[in-house]
Amino acid sequence: MAQIILFHHARGLTEGVRALAEQITAAGGHTVHTPDLFDGHVFATAEEGLAYVEQMGRDEFMTRAMRACAEHKEASVVAGISLGVMPAWKAAQTAPGFRACIALSAALPLNAYAPLWQPHTALQIHLAAEDPWVKEEDLPAARAYAATAEHPDNPADLFEYATDRHLFMDSSTEDHDPELTEVVVQRVVELLA
């Protein structure tokens, strides 16, 4: 079974993020670590959480995330939701040992933190096709990654969901969609198998 690090979104380590981790564990028997990068702060809106990140500093945010990776050296999979995709992506590109990166509700350029994506690291991206938070260039870029995956053993997989709900996988938000969450969990478990 895999050990997974799941980084939370801008609202913080919500009950919905914890519930998603529990669903992945229940479905596949995997261990999911959910480091709290906000020291217990949970915010009602993403804007409040992003203001908190600006106050602490983006460098400090990323430092906390990389520290969490170092604390969970047994983890072979890194994942993130929205804002949490940034540290997940960085860890997948710069920290040795990760075999997969799962990006929920965000995507970055393949060369965001290193010149090339590591060929041994599978990439799975989940995006709401009508998500107002997803940058205009993210969806076409993610489609290009999936279409031109150079390593057939570890392809980039993109899953698009017909919704405009940004945090549809977080049961503690108004965006939650339980049916889509089940689909996400099943696809994550299939990747880890």
Results as ranks from 00 to 15, higher is better:
H33C: 04
E150F: 14
V185I: 05
G84H: 00
V77M: 07
E60K: 06
C69F: 08
S171H: 08
A92D: 11
Y161N: 05
P132I: 03
E47C: 02
T25S: 15
D39Q: 15
M86V: 14
Q186A: 15
G80M: 00
M1Y: 13
A75K: 15
V183G: 01
R67W: 02
A103V: 05
P115V: 00
V188L: 11
V53W: 03
D170V: 15
G97S: 07
M66Y: 06
D36Y: 05
C69P: 02
A65Q: 00
F168K: 06
A65P: 00
A144S: 11
P152C: 12
P119Q: 12
A103M: 12
L108C: 07
H33G: 05
L37G: 04
A193S: 15
E47L: 13
R64L: 06
M1N: 10
A141K: 10
A141F: 06
T163A: 01
A156M: 07
V32P: 04
F61H: 01
V188K: 07
H41E: 09
V42Q: 13
Y161R: 04
D164I: 04
S82F: 02
A92E: 09
T14M: 12
L110F: 03
M62F: 13
V78F: 06
P35H: 01
L37Y: 06
R165G: 01
A156G: 03
A91G: 13
N154M: 06
S82I: 02
A51S: 13
A68K: 01
Q186S: 15
A95Y: 11
A144N: 14
V189P: 05
E137G: 05
A44V: 10
A162Q: 15
L110V: 09
A2W: 04
S171W: 08
I81M: 12
M1G: 09
L37A: 00
A156T: 12
P96Y: 03
I102A: 11
R58E: 12
E22M: 12
V77F: 10
E174W: 11
E22Y: 13
T63K: 14
A149T: 14
L83W: 05
L108S: 01
A141N: 03
A95N: 07
A144I: 09
T94E: 04
P109L: 08
P155M: 10
H120I: 02
